[in-house]
């Protein structure tokens, strides 16, 4: 099943719409396999599926990076990469206010950091990796040069 999806994704220029229901059965089987057996043959089988999953991921990413719209169970998940691309581009093209690798951001929702509560409208200076994590949760918004 997974090999067919990978083949299909390779042959088509546009991203295919992958439904999780098409993969659920396989995921369940592979989980059982991992739990049940510990011999070399089964390990090899799982390894092949891991490689197929990795290939699918790389194919989907390459299409996303080209600006194509991803549909299916992984669309929200892969949007994080889009977000990563936006942050990276904005950072390097001077759209953010920064101090070295840290970016100045607004706080959007109340959250705690090191036992201190920050409120909407507060300001926080964060390294790139934390910016990505907290933007994904909609906790912060980087200030932009207008």
């Amino acid at each position: 099943m997974l090999d067919e999806i990978v083949l299909n994704e390779t042959l088509k220029e546009e991203p295919t719409e992958i439904q999780l229901k098409d993969l659920n059965q396989l995921i369940v089987q592979l989980r059982k396999l991992r739990r049940k057996y510990n011999d070399e043959l089964h390990k090899k089988e799982i390894e092949i599926y891991e490689e197929l999953a990795e290939s699918l991921f790389e194919l989907r990413i390459s299409k996303l990076v080209e600006g194509k719209e991803i549909k299916g169970f992984d669309s929200d998940f892969l949007q994080v990469l889009n977000l990563m691309k936006i942050i990276y581009t904005n950072f390097l093209s001077g759209k953010y206010f920064n101090l070295e690798d840290k970016i100045l951001c607004y706080v959007n929702v109340k959250f705690s950091m090191k036992n201190k509560t920050l409120h909407p409208g507060d300001l926080i200076l964060l390294p790139l990796r934390q910016v990505l994590a907290l933007i994904t949760l909609n906790y912060i918004t980087p200030l932009e040069v207008e």
Binding site: L99, T117, H119, G121
Partner: peptide, 15 residues
């Protein structure tokens, strides 16, 4: 921010 190790400004938090 520039010289110390502060990384947030709050306008309302007493923490």
């Amino acid at each position: 921010f520039k010289y110390g190790k502060v990384n947030a400004i709050s306008f309302s938090s007493d923490d």
